[in-house]
Amino acid sequence: MAQPRLLVTMGDPNGIGPEVVAKALARPDVRAAAELAVVGLRSVLAPWLERAGAGGVEVVEPESAPGFVPRFGEVDAQAGRLAHRWVEFAAGECLAGRAAAMVTAPVNKAAFALAGIRETGHQEVLQRVSGAETVLTMLATGRLRCVHLSTHKPLREACAFVTREHVRRALVLTDREFCRWGLERARIAVAALNPHAGEGGLIGREEVDEIVPAVEDARAAGVDARGPFPADSVFNRAIAGEFDAVLVMYHDQGHIAVKVHGFERSVSVNLGLPFIRTSVDHGTAFDIAGRGIANAESMAEAMLLAARLARGAGLAEEGRG
């Protein structure tokens, strides 16, 4: 059987993206998992490939950038524009059926803004290009998978986003995507927003007024949703195998749990796109860019997970899915 073709975007060329991509591609298990091509600039990637001992890698250049030289650690408009273009190109290839999945190295939000790009990150770009109605971010490390109701919202706005409809829609989408990835029925825990799951309305009304009705709605639609459970205990239950995923109410609620449990191996996955997209679970790390000391474990895991999903092999090799 032919290996799935995966496109790997190089990320902001002034960050650690080219380095971690090259290091991940030097791993035999990664190279054996799929047909991999990097979308970026050959001139930027080549020194890192040589340093990592990763020869024979295909590099696709959607546009040339004559004379571009990375300035490690600097926010730069051209770097932001190039990184944005590479994401758009890879998404287009997936939509056209010329790639089975895409894997993304980190971009820099400030560089996007400096280039005049309104989108703040990958998810916003991919949602626009694909026309997807709802897109969610999931972080995964081992058995812990956290699906985020919202991501880059100020905390005040994130709390206001916790509504019956938003929670119900997220549960239905999570169940649909997990089934598409190989689970017959996903067991989804819902994390509470307030301490002690609101104590019946004594410590906040969101659980009573919004989350519980949403869980009931989802269950009526055939989704195995449970909760809300206090956020200080639900993640351990998921790690122990009781749940396949936890729906969290805001960015840090899920990110902290995942990164404490297994930061170096954590991977980001989008739910709701018409194609597979995985990513590293870290930023451009401008403080160490160009020094050759970046850890490529997350990038390697993102490539391996994309390959498994593209083959229909499920979310993880260990545990359910």
Score class of each variant (00 low, 15 high):
18 P>K: 11
13 P>H: 05
56 G>K: 11
20 V>P: 04
52 A>I: 12
52 A>L: 14
11 G>Y: 05
36 L>F: 12
43 S>K: 14
20 V>D: 03
27 R>Y: 06
35 E>D: 15
23 K>P: 09
23 K>V: 07
36 L>W: 14
25 L>G: 12
55 G>L: 00
49 L>Q: 12
7 L>W: 02
27 R>H: 11
38 V>G: 02
12 D>C: 00
41 L>F: 02
52 A>D: 15
32 A>G: 04
50 E>T: 13
4 P>K: 03
43 S>H: 11
31 R>M: 04
36 L>R: 03
13 P>E: 08
17 G>L: 05
45 L>E: 01
35 E>P: 01
56 G>I: 07
53 G>E: 03
22 A>W: 11
36 L>N: 09
19 E>G: 05
37 A>G: 08
13 P>T: 11
40 G>F: 14
52 A>F: 10
24 A>D: 12
40 G>A: 13
44 V>A: 07
15 G>M: 07
51 R>Y: 02
20 V>M: 00
24 A>K: 06
17 G>C: 13
6 L>W: 06
43 S>V: 12
49 L>E: 10
31 R>E: 03
50 E>W: 01
56 G>H: 11
40 G>M: 14
4 P>R: 02
55 G>K: 04
43 S>Q: 15
19 E>K: 04
35 E>T: 15
11 G>I: 15
45 L>N: 04
21 V>R: 05
26 A>N: 03
11 G>V: 13
17 G>F: 11
39 V>W: 11
29 D>A: 14
57 V>I: 15
35 E>W: 00
31 R>I: 06
15 G>W: 09
14 N>Y: 07
14 N>G: 06
11 G>L: 05
5 R>D: 05
26 A>H: 08
49 L>D: 07
23 K>L: 15
44 V>R: 03
17 G>V: 13
45 L>S: 03
31 R>N: 06
7 L>I: 08
31 R>S: 09
21 V>Y: 07
34 A>L: 04
12 D>K: 00
40 G>Q: 01
40 G>C: 13
50 E>N: 06
28 P>A: 15
17 G>K: 07
7 L>T: 02
51 R>M: 12
34 A>D: 10
26 A>M: 08
5 R>C: 01
25 L>V: 10
57 V>Q: 11
4 P>W: 02
43 S>L: 05
20 V>Y: 00
49 L>C: 12
38 V>D: 04
55 G>R: 14
26 A>Q: 03
30 V>Y: 07
27 R>W: 13
18 P>W: 01
57 V>F: 11
38 V>R: 10
51 R>A: 15
37 A>C: 09
42 R>C: 00
42 R>V: 00
15 G>D: 13
55 G>T: 06
32 A>C: 01
41 L>N: 02
38 V>K: 03
26 A>E: 02
32 A>S: 10
49 L>F: 09
33 A>I: 05
5 R>G: 03
4 P>C: 03
18 P>Q: 06
43 S>Y: 01
45 L>D: 01
15 G>F: 10
52 A>W: 14
6 L>S: 09
35 E>K: 06
